[in-house]
Amino acid sequence: MKPAPFKYVLASSLDHALALKAEHGDEARFLAGGQSLIPAMNFRLARPSVLIDINGLTSLAGIDRPEAGQVRVGALMRYRALERDGEFLRSCPLFADALPHIAHPQIRNRGTIGGNLSHADPASELPALAVAMQAKMRIRSAAGGRTVAASDFFAGLLTTDLASDEMLVDITYPVLAPRSGACFMEVARRRGDFAIAGVAAVVTLDEERRCASVRLALCGVGETPVDAGAAALPMVGSRVTGESIDAVAAGVRELIAPSGNVHASADYQRHVAGELVRRAIRTAHQRISHAA
């Protein structure tokens, strides 16, 4: 289990990295945290001929607030840095729930948010968070830049909207709105494993404590993170009750089409996803009450 040969280049700037990617295209891969890429290379499932190391690009490793109500996270932010950033976790509490589920501390010390999202593993937590939070993904290439919505970013199994010359450079998340509660939950075989099913839920109430909106996204149950917001629409406009939550769970079970894997049958994934939806909405809702 040793990687095939490649040429290694330490990028000296973002422009340098992007120029190299433009030159080498699909033959080249960016090396960020390497916690998915290097195992794939060790198995020789990935054989890039050029590895562009972007770990020196400190400009990609920060958090800022471009506007009120938004947090922008650089692609090179490591999970551990996010975990240790109390202010960030308060602004985006789904991360507080989700980050501990990502592998183990040793992996979280290296793995980056940009690498995770660009890898687009559908069982991974952060793509579901991006979809649930309606994050905006800023993409750069040597030729220019663009921004896409998270829901458009994840194109398929391990596939994103990124062209061969592009890099995800940062992600902008809305901070949790007033009168809102958020919850991420997942079922995995062991702590740190990829989710059999995971649910990110954000519930917002109006001033009469009726449901104003529900954001809902799932991981592990499709080829991409699944936006299940539609299943929660019937809840909007009325009080959150056990029955209405059950109805959303039933709706999600119909909406998703998990494929099953060595750890779980598709039926079990569907069943668990529904149960997690129930629990996550309930918890998110309770968290509003507790905050109020």
């Binding site: 079922v187 075989r189 750890h263 049958s265």
Partner: peptide, 11 residues
């Protein structure tokens, strides 16, 4: 056994 298998068996 596993959670998934228990689900299948009981269902």
């Amino acid at each position: 056994l596993s959670p998934s298998r228990l689900f299948e068996l009981t269902r």
